[in-house]
Structure formats: C-alpha cells, structure tokens
Design a protein around this nucleic acid. Sequence first.
DNA 1: AGATGAACATACTACCGGGTATGTTGTCAA
DNA 2: TTGACAACATACCCGGTAGTATGTTCATCT
Lengths: 210, 210
Amino acid sequence: MSLSERELTLESSHGDILAAAAELFMDRGYAATSLDEVARSLGATKGRIYHHFPSKSVLFAEVFRHGMAMNYAAIEPHRHLAGSPTMRWRRMAFAHVMQMITTKPFQMAVWMGVEMHLRGATTPEQRTVFNELIQYRKDYGDLFRSVIIDGREKGEFDFEDVSVTNQLMFMTLNSPIFWYRPKTGETKANREDLARKVVVCALRGLGGKE
Amino acid sequence: MSLSERELTLESSHGDILAAAAELFMDRGYAATSLDEVARSLGATKGRIYHHFPSKSVLFAEVFRHGMAMNYAAIEPHRHLAGSPTMRWRRMAFAHVMQMITTKPFQMAVWMGVEMHLRGATTPEQRTVFNELIQYRKDYGDLFRSVIIDGREKGEFDFEDVSVTNQLMFMTLNSPIFWYRPKTGETKANREDLARKVVVCALRGLGGKE
DNA sequence: AGATGAACATACTACCGGGTATGTTGTCAA
DNA sequence: TTGACAACATACCCGGTAGTATGTTCATCT
C-alpha cells in the first residue's frame, strides 16, 4: 500500500490519461466511451493511450485501482484510532464521503467496475485482473464492516442483518457520486457540511446515536 | 394513468420484447446491449423489434415508461390513506421497495434512464421523449417528497435538508436493484422481510420513530 | 377465392470503434 | 555526431451494430 506521492497525485502523462479516462467513463459509461474521445479530450490521439495501456479494459482497471488506492489512503489515518467504534466509524465514513465528492470520476469507475463484475460483463482474460480489484474493494468494505460489527457488540449500534445493513450503509455513503454536483463558489466547508449530512443519515441507519 | 391490465402484465408480443430488452439492458447496460441480442433472447430477429419499435432509444424509453407505470400503480392504493404521514410513508415505501425487487430489470432501466439524462448522454431528438419520462419520474419522487415534508411539519420526522434527505432516502429504497438476487427456494415472505429491513433503515434516516 | 395487411424473417449498407502497424520527433548517452 | 529509445502521431484493418429495404407467411375480410 506504499504508493508514491506521484502515483497519488497523477503528475505524469500516465496520470493525465487516467484522469481524462475517468472523466469520460463517468460521463458516458464504459461501453459508450471511445478511446478516440479520451485522446481528443487530452488534445492527443489514440497512439498516446496505447503507448501507456495495452487495452481499453486495462485502462479502466487502472482507473479503478487508482480510485481504490486513494480511498485506502484517505481512511488510513482513522482506522486505528483509539476511542469508541462510533467515533472511528464517523471518521472513516466522513473521509470516505469526502473521497466520493472530491474524486468522483474515479469513484464512479470503481462503482461501475463492481457492477460489471456482478453482472459478469467481463471477458475471461479481464477476470484475472478484475478479481484482484474486486477483492481489493471487498477488503476495503470489510474495514467498515468490522467496525460496525464491533459497534453493535458494544451496544453502540443497533441493527438486524449485517450484510443488508452494510449494503445500505455503503449505498448511502457512496451516493454522492450520483447526485453531487459542485456549485459555483462552493467552499470546502460546504462540501464538508454536505458530507456530514450524509454521514449522519448513514449513522442513523446503523441505529447509532448522534 | 389508466393503463389496461394487458399493458401492465405485458401479455403481448410488444410486451415480450419490452421484458426481454429490460433484462438485457440490466445485464449489459444500454450501450453494450445490441438489438440482435435482444432478438436472439426471444428466439427471433431484429425485424420483429423494428416492427414494434422505431429505434433502440425508443425501445429503451418504453421500458422506462413501463417501469414507472408499474411503480405508480403499486403505490396508488396507499397514497391517499388516512393516518399519520409515517404510516402513509411506510406503506408507500414498502410498496416501492417490493417493486424494486419484483420488477428489477425495469427499475434498473429507470435508473439508467435517469442517469443518462443527468449525464446529458442523449441526442436532441431523444430529449423530447426523455424529458417527459424524467418529469414522470420526478412527479413520482415528489409524491414521497411531500409526504416526508408533511411528516416533518407534524414532528414525526427529523432532518435538516429536504433535498439531500430525499436523495438519500431514494438511494436506500432503490438500492435492491443493485444488490438483490433471488435465492433458490425463496418465498414471498422472505422478500417482504427484506423489503421491511430496507424500509426501516430508510425510516431511520428520516429521523422517524419505528 | 382473392386481396390485403399485420407480423415477422432475410439480406444488406454504412459507420463506428478497438486494436495494430508503421512513421515521426525529441532527447540523451556514448 | 550518431544511434537508440521513449513518446507519441498517422494510417489502416476489421468485427460488430443501428438502421433499412425487401421478401415471406398467415389470418381475416369481402
């Protein structure tokens, strides 16, 4: 998990392509996005993309991977904090939601990647690299899962079914990728307030106390 | 809103195509679904589809429309019930979630249609028919919106932002279209229990009392 | 019986998009 | 200076797909 600063901030041609691809995958979906469009949005041609990535599916997979890497980096500082499960969960959830808002194109790709895997819309060759990414994403989800289980055991949370609750919680926390739009003149405080509302709603769903 | 029984149950060739198309749109997404595949899943050819629908986008729009029509029909019995907003909301929400589960392919198409519209992934000609459908969907959403506003005024619900809360509520209520899979030997009671859990979680998000 | 049209199937076209093969330019090391 | 390689651009191939134009069958009406 030791990604260099360069890899996280994408200061490279490789990274420029990832960012442009993420944007278009978000806007048009995977299938409807052509590599010509991605290249054109960079003021380049397909040759540039194929110089860095062997195929469209690998390009998408790298967008997926980068999105997940940023998520891990975002919640890492809060994972091992002392304090109640509720407090740990709140910090992690808040960081997660802020990620959904600030790196939306990449998070959209993560979502689409999971969807494509669930629908089996992958060729056998893609499966290998995809399985690893799905596992990557699953491990991330389990970080939250164990916290809410811990919280329930300590009586801080109250819910019936762990799987269903976890699904619903992530739906809420992820939802900004679908409906969030940056407003003109929006400040960081605005975004944080929005994220707080989302976290509060998800916390209620867990049966937690505010 | 007076749809014939035939239109709601799809006992026609027209309806068979709608159902098959909905299934494939769900499995592969709009862009990745070819009309040849839809036809093949029916044991037919493209000629049959183009005899009933003028284009792929119109076929998709009709799937969308049919999904929404079923939703309206499902919550109609509960809309004007006497009783508390909480009770009215619970009935409507439960009916809605059951719709998500039982008519998943169509509801997935509705979701995709809204997404496509938000992303502007529509041609100018599609816009006309699409705008009407989006309005159709918006009106449906407003039925819930007015109930939760009513509930808040009567002190039964407790939340800050109406728009954000409505978004998050629908995310929760709609989420089964993404993660629900029918189990073998599953009964109607199983599905209803699942729907109940989803409704409870959404109700908590509204700050309502169980 | 013959005409007519609905409900398809068949055959075809035009185009788009992933992938490839090859050319071009700048840079840097020996 | 030159050769070698990275980092692209250009030109092309080819499979797939939306849409069309044209047959074919069968039921129904007169």
